[in-house]
Structure formats: C-alpha cells, structure tokens
Design a protein around this nucleic acid. Structure first.
Lengths: 406, 406
DNA sequence: AGGTGTTTGTCGTGAACTATGACAAACTCA
DNA sequence: TGAGTTTGTCATAGTTCACGACAAACACCT
C-alpha cells in the first residue's frame, strides 16, 4: 500500500518541515520560517507554538537587528530536553554517547576490548554495561547533571544491516552472521527504548549531510575509507538505502579486474586499491600497522618523502578512477571523503583534481565539490543519533508517550 | 524553499495516488482502492468522481465475481481522451508517436535521415514536420480518426539534458553542444504545448519501470547498451536524476584502467567493454557493421559458433563486473537490460548468473532479478510520453486549462 | 519627543479536505 | 424469501491552513 495523505498528515509534515529547517539552517526568526515554507504567519505561529510545547524548540526574545518593522522572535532547537544514546561498535573498541537534538555530543565514553571478545553475546553485554555507566555518569550532579529525556538508542555497526527487520546480515570484521543485535540488546537492557541500527558508513554519510561537510548539498556522495571502504548517498537529506538496505558498499565497486582479491570474495574492488592496506604497502610502510603507520605516513608526506609521495599519487589516481565513475552515475553536487581518505585528502588534492578533470565525461563541467569530512571521528556517532531521532523528526507531535531516562 | 504541505495539496496528492495506482496495477474496484490507499469509501468516491469528470478514468458496471456483498464498480484508466506526442531523436532516424494515458503507442511514424542533416536547426525542422504529419494522420477519419486531447510533447535525445533549463548540454553523436531543442521546437511549432525533454536511456528506464520489466520493483537499475551504454535508476517509480540531471551515464563507470580509450575522454569505461563495438570485434565481425552485424552475431550464437560463444562469454564477464559493482552500490531488487544487452541476454544468461554469484559481496544473497527489457524498441518512446504526462500525473485536477490538439 | 511608515504577532472567520456513522442498495447463500 | 455481507451515498463533524483586520514593536524623520 502506497501511503495516502490524510488530514492530520498535513500538520505532521509541516511540523517536521519546520523542525528540519531549524536543524539544517540554524536559529531563525518566525518570519524566516514564513518565507522559507510559504505558509502564512498564523500557520507558522501555530506550528512553532506546538513545537515549543513539546519542548523541541525555544523562542528567544526578538533582537532588533536595525531593520524597520517589528522584530521577529528567534526560534531555535531546544537542545536541553531530548537526547538519544548513540552506540558505536568497532572491532577493538566500543563507544557510547549522549547526543542532543542539535547533533551535539554531550557525553561520551569509550572502552577498548580484545579481539577475542567480539562475539555477539559479549558485545551486547559490554554495550549494555557501557550504556548503564554512561547513564549514571550523565545524571550524576558532579560529572554531568544531565536530565535530558532519552528517547531512543541508535547503533552503528561495521556490517550490512537489513532494513526489513533491523538485523545484521553480516559483519565481516566482527565475524557475525545473521545477528539480531537490536533485539539482543533490548533483552539485556531492561527498558523499552526503541533501538535502531545502521551501517557505519551510511550513518557517517547521514551525519555529514546534516551537520558536516555535506550541509546544503542536494545530492551527496560520501566515501569513507579505513581498511575497508564504505559510503553512502544522501538525496534531499534522506539516505538512499536500497531495496534491502545494503546500498552503502561503494568499496566494492570493481575498478581493476586485474587487481588483487578482495575479502568480499570478488577481485579488484575499489577498496583493494584505495584502502589503508594498499596505501601503506605502496608507501613502503607496515601494511597492517594500523593507525600508527598511518600517522607515520602523514608525517612523511609533510616532509616530502618521495616514496610516500608516489604512493599518494597512486592513491589519488585510483580514487579518481572510482569517483569519476560514481560521479557519472550519480551526478552528485558534493563528494565528501571521510576517515583515512579525508585525512590524506590535503596531501593529494592537486593530483586528485587533475585526474578528475581529465576523466570528466565529454568535458562537461559538473560543479562537483570534493571536500574532507567535517565531523571527524564523531561522524558515525552523530549518524547513529540521527537514526535514533528519526521517529521524532518524522512525527514531532507524538512526543507524549515516549520513554524517559533509561 | 522546501515545499510545505497546504490544504489543497492533500487532494492533489490523493488524486495523483489513485491515478498512479490505476496505471500501475491496472483496473480495480473502488473497494480495492479503499484497501490500498487506506482512505475511506466516501473519500475514494469523491476522488474517483473527480477523475471521471476530468475524463481520466472510466467506471465499468460492477461485475459479480461470486463473493458475497454488493459488487463494487471497476475503475480503469480512460485511454481515449488524452494523449501526448512522443518524439524520438536518433542519429539516423527520427520518430514521432501518439501515446495514450495507459502507455500504449496509438499511432507512430518514423523517418530516416542522412547523417549530414543532424544539425540542430534541420532536426528541429524535420521533427516539426513529422509532428504535423502525425497530427494529420491521427485525425484523418481513414487512417486514425483519433480525437484525443494532446496535452504535451515529450522528446527523447541521446545526450545530457540539464534539468534546470531543459537544455541539451551535449549530444556527442549528434554533435550538439548547449542546444535548447525544446525552445527551438516550440518556436517552429505554432502552439503552446509544453515540451519536455530527457535522456534516451533515462526515459527507457522510466518506461520499463512503469510498463515493462520493471513493474513492481522498488529499486530498478536499467542498463541499455547499443554502441553507447546508458541507463538509469528508478526508485519508487521516480527516476533518480542527480543534481544536474545527468545521472544516467552508467556506461562511463571505470571498469578497466588498462583498457582502451573511450569517446568520452576517459579510459576503460564500461561501454568500451560491453558496447556493440567491443562485442562485434571480439566475435570477429565488422566492428562498425551496425545492426546487420549484430543480427549476424545473434544468428551465429544460435548455431554455436565458438568464436561468437567466446565473445559472449567475455561480454558476460564484463557485464558482471560492472553490474556487481552497481548492485553493491545501489542494492536494486531488479536489473533490466535493454537494447543490445537485452537481445544478447538469453545467449549469456548462464555465464552472467555464474559470474554475478561469484562476485557477490560476502556471499550475501540479494534477491536481484536480472531481466531483459519488455518494451523493446518502444521503450524510449513510451518514456518520452511518461515525461510529457508528468504534469498531469502530478496534478490531475488542473486539467481544464490545457491545450487541445496541435 | 512625537509622528509616520514598516514589519510582525494575534485573533476571528472561512474554505477545503477527510473521517465518521447511519442508511439504502446489491449481491450470495440457505 | 429472508438473513448476512459488502458497498455506495449522504449529512455532519473535525482538522488544518488561508485570509483579512487590528494591535504591537521597531526605525526613521522632523
């Protein structure tokens, strides 16, 4: 059944629109909202009042900005009343954070863990423990004194999440197959907060599009690379999930049929050419050296080390090969590079731009900006929070029957 | 400004929904519409009545199907009252057709033309002439007797169409750059029918998604190959146009950095590996032999010619390389192959399926169906018609102030 | 200091939908 | 023929936004 529009839908949609505008464009006057939405002053008044009653926005007294006429009150997101728990599951670390409605990370704690303890059961246990500790800390008058109303939990995992049932189909680095993390976590935590779960790269894309380097873009292509390469497409503020919800695997675009085997099972995937291992190998550094080797590489790049320079040129070339293809297929107006790719971007920007220009379709100028990610390490956390805020953002009116603190 | 929902929008949206359901799912009873939309009986009654007044649908007397209760009248698209002119501009041929609201080609005429006469001015002149002749023919009591109300013109061109101003940015095979075909045609034809224009492959994708092999798919990837390879993505019935409107160039995905130069300026584009020229060359046939050579190839494939078989295997391999990447990135539930690719599909289906399975990400089953196009040569014509019907489909109520016959 | 012009919030009325419920119509089955 | 079921129709009610009039709050000028 395709959704028909009913009468109450109108208000819901307009409330969501106003809230979205305030989040996207920041604080603005009622008159700005009138101009941007095309609604009348009285309609905006009603909507803003309702959002204010729900404690989703606050109105500041009008500030006279020098223009003639009666000044309009400034409306902005109320970041004090609502929050979500954002969970980040990594291979050797887990993190939990409280994120407010304006996308700010209010509290966060992390915890390292051995590679041995990455089973589903132990991960769920560890995450639950972390969430409980986070909740204590944030409420403690000394450490936080936070009385925010927590309305959901968002989880970021390095794996494929099936949209239909929120289950993890496969998470290669964790060794999980068909794991229903959300349900397991809900069983261990003893409250009824809704738990949503998403792919790390896709959530990074969402975060960058709403609060990072992708703000204002109509079609955003996000590519995040570490060892693996993931990404996502965000069109008009909403991520393109695909039929199953798997549409983030840009790392497994075939770019080199004569290349090396990929852990995904295919040959010559993009991530085998632009991933961390390839870059380190070409630079003559320890391929599996991890973050330390990457830091070393960046340090040497600054000094002009020739082998590192050559490796970065090669990286730029392969990056351009994949990107130009994706640009031809998607026609985005902005490309944001995250993770390792974002960090090395300044060192290969010139070469990358030249390669991209050379590969332009029919020399048609496309006005694609290529930027580094702006949220850094917080992008997946913020993305997980966006996921958890999803229900609220879609239907701001139904705030009443929501869970309070954990 | 993001669009806010106002009161009249509700009716417009629901009218469009009912019309869309009738087009997509075929004739159905009022009760079916009630069930599918979630609206009440009285609401559906009002909507259907309005569509009937506009002569967009007709109601057939209820047929008793054996179930208890009062039988419900069957509503179906009225294909007799409205139509559009669908124009297809090819390199050596132009076509014009009258297409009815249910996507059927009612009348069509074509005209060959020399490669010399492909300039913008002469093409516009030829197209205008063809449209006038088509209009005469369709009205003539002998040939057609068609009194359909023509409400727009849709044009398919082999080139990049900029969404912002409907202009053709570049059409390589025609030698056009920054050509405002729509305006030129409007100047020559002396009526005020709205003219919309689109990329041929993108329109093919639209047509297949609404009336062809893509019906029912939520995420459709369409790839059409002749000499060039184009395509399109259709999500939820709407094509993904991209920021500029260029998002159809799947042929220029980089799949082989060590391959041959592409006419687009890059190296190793998908179309250099799966396009008509590559296939004919590998099969030992005349690379530039055109349709005749393709027919020869298909004939030999049926007889089991070894060189042709090898060429088809190679075609399947490269097809799979590109498709698996696109499937990883988009996660479609259906892939439709058109043009040459659709014709050779039966001859390489086995090999293609095997290659696709081998390249599946982490052996995750995705339920992607790969099908040949169902509309054949008519797909771009039907797609151009869909484009021209766009305004009507989006806002079925505003039928009154529309142009009559050309 | 006070008047004028401009912009904005508020309030009451009206218009456009859809929802609801009662009732009649049309069919199947016993 | 009558009971049960499903459906169309109609009148009423409930939402929501649009519109217009009025008052409030500011800048600017005299």
């Amino acid at each position: 059944m395709v959704s028909a529009v009913r009468a109450p839908q109108v208000r819901q949609s307009n409330l969501a629109l106003v809230l979205d505008l305030l989040r996207r464009l920041g604080p603005q006057s009622r008159s700005d909202l009138v101009a941007r939405t095309g609604l009348t002053r009285s309609a905006i008044a009603g909507l803003v009042t309702e959002l204010e009653v729900q404690r989703l926005v606050v109105e500041a007294p009008p500030s006279s900005d020098g223009s003639p006429g009666r000044p309009s009150p400034i409306v902005r997101i109320d970041d004090r009343h609502y929050g979500v728990f954002a969970i980040e599951v990594l291979v050797d670390e887990i993190g939990a954070a409280v994120v407010s409605l304006d996308g700010a990370v209010v509290h966060s704690i992390r915890r390292a863990r051995g590679r041995r303890s990455s089973s589903l059961a132990s991960t769920v246990r560890d995450v639950a423990g972390l969430v409980r500790r986070l909740d204590e800390q944030r409420r403690s008058p000394v450490l936080g004194g936070d009385e925010r109303n927590i309305i959901g939990i968002g989880v970021s995992v390095p794996g494929l999440v099936r949209r239909a049932d929120n289950a993890i189909v496969v998470a290669p680095n964790l060794g999980w197959v068909e794991a229903d993390f959300a349900r397991s976590l809900a069983d261990v935590l003893e409250h009824d907060l809704p738990i949503s779960i998403g792919n790390d790269a896709e959530l990074g894309a969402l975060a960058e599009s709403r609060f990072g380097a992708g703000v204002g873009a109509s079609h955003l292509l996000f590519v995040s690379g570490e060892v693996g390469v993931g990404g996502g497409l965000v069109v008009g503020g909403q991520p393109l999930a695909g039929h199953n919800g798997f549409a983030a695997e840009v790392g497994h675009l075939s770019v080199n049929p004569f290349g090396s085997g990929c852990r995904c099972g295919a040959v010559g995937c993009w991530e085998t050419e632009i991933g961390e291992h390839a870059l380190l190998r070409r630079a003559g550094l320890a391929e599996f050296g991890g973050r330390r080797s990457v830091d070393e590489l960046l340090a040497r790049a600054a000094t002009g080390d020739t082998r590192v320079r050559a490796a970065l040129d090669e990286e730029a070339k392969w990056l351009a090969i994949g990107l130009s293809g994706l640009i031809n297929v998607f026609d985005p107006d902005r490309v944001v590079l995250g993770g390792l790719l974002g960090r090395v971007l300044p060192h290969l920007r010139e070469r990358l731009d030249a390669e991209l220009v050379g590969r332009r379709f029919q020399h048609v100028s496309r006005d694609v900006e290529v930027l580094g990610a702006a949220l850094g390490e917080q992008s997946t956390t913020v993305g997980a929070a966006e996921l958890a805020f999803g229900d609220l953002l879609r239907d701001p009116a139904r705030t009443s029957p929501r869970g309070s603190g954990a």
